[in-house]
Design a protein around this nucleic acid. Structure first.
Lengths: 229, 229
DNA sequence: AAATATAATATGTAATCCATAATTATGGAA
DNA sequence: TTCCATAATTATGGATTACATATTATATTT
């Protein structure tokens, strides 16, 4: 009956991963309603694990659960993006400050190596690799800040904009701009200039927000979920 | 069979509320393991709604879910408190800054009225009422900051320390100290001095953190969840 | 007495069932 | 013919039950 799945992870997690991929591939576009019965039938499972999966994705911000109306692929409005980036800039800025305060030799070495990856992937115009390297660098800054609650809060917010953020590096010139900002940030961190590091990080975030805005102007005229009422 | 519960809200929500009360009343003390079968039997329900309730409480930070080991009433260590307050100070400070920037006549009036409650309840030494009034004032600042993500992020973090925070106002002199800090904060807000408002709010949070620390020295010698390994 | 194996217990997961709200279709009246 | 009301259908939300698996406790053997 069930050929694969010998020592399976939880079914709902498997389903969540499949849906995640379909959402990121825009096979399920933002705003798309998700028909539980149809999907469950398609996957040959009952509704329970599917609903569990949807709850997980809702917690990640990928889908939105509307009571009695069902699940929809999340859609983020421009104003919501602004609001999230406003908070993220403050938090990541704070992380950079703390990181600069706590920097030691080991950490400096790690940051230099991670930054090196950025330089290399940027020179090769390897966008996906640059994206990865960028993630790693920011993760190291968070690690340095040494505050698990700061980290998890930032992670939660990042997750919400992940869908929007993913393609912004393909924007003309964004990669070079990001690299330059990283150079300045790295310099401030290595010098232990907490104030400057915070400022650089905030600016970096602001710049990232604008890259997305720029993208959207080209792509889609209006994206807002219904906010009128 | 089921006497009350005519048009009930979700059973798991009802259960979550009951557990919440028992936790806040310390009837279920921090660290206490939660026996699903026993509790389900006690409430006369199946495990499913109980487990749903536990998931909700886990998201709120009131209980901790350990895989394959079960649920425990959350216990927050001193260092975790520090970490949370560090983030909260940054976020609430930012909220105060934005609030000061966006202040108008209506808002000023509301803030004055809310602060008036603080003055009155403090004079009457009505600690619970002061606690309520304090919550309302901070909520208004958040409302003014006009960023739903900032609000919800702060709410999430507050929830985690709610258990610790609740009794700190009973500490000798804490109420007066808090009131004085609020006076300065209000002044900064009403003058639209964003910088000062942020500074006051951060200081207010730092002070709140210390009040808890002070309490703990009296009450419990060591509270840390196992962090050694 | 210690270690390993086995039994008992509790948790994690999923399928089925039932209740309720929302949507759609149908019929009647203006 | 069109609009509104009501009924029927459909989909979602919630909960009991059942089953698989990991952990813990106990007993037996070395």
């Amino acid at each position: 009956m069930t050929p694969q799945r010998i020592a399976p992870q939880a079914l709902y997690q498997e389903v969540a991963e499949r849906l995640r991929q379909r959402i990121f591939a825009h096979e399920l576009p933002p705003g798309q309603p998700i028909d539980e019965l149809r999907l469950a039938a398609e996957y040959g499972i009952s509704r329970t694990p599917l609903r569990e999966a949807l709850k997980v994705l809702a917690a990640e911000g990928l889908v939105t659960l509307v009571p009695r109306r069902g699940a929809f692929v999340s859609q983020i409005s421009a104003s919501e993006l602004d609001a999230i980036f406003d908070v993220l800039a403050v938090l990541e800025g704070h992380a950079a400050r703390r990181a600069a305060e706590r920097l030691d030799e080991e950490a400096a070495k790690r940051l230099r190596r991670l930054h090196q990856r950025l330089e290399e992937t940027a020179r090769a115009a390897a966008i996906d690799a640059f994206f990865e390297a960028n993630q790693a660098f920011h993760a190291e800054v968070l690690r340095l800040a040494n505050n698990p609650f700061l980290s998890s809060t930032i992670q939660d917010l990042r997750q919400k904009i992940r869908l929007s953020r993913h393609h912004s590096l393909y924007d003309e010139g964004r990669l070079e701009r990001s690299l330059q900002e990283h150079r300045e940030l790295l310099a401030a961190l290595l010098e232990g200039e907490a104030e400057a590091a915070e400022r650089c990080m905030r600016e970096h975030l602001r710049s990232g927000r604008e890259a997305i805005a720029h993208l959207r102007r080209d792509a889609t005229p209006t994206l807002d979920t219904e906010e009128s009422s």
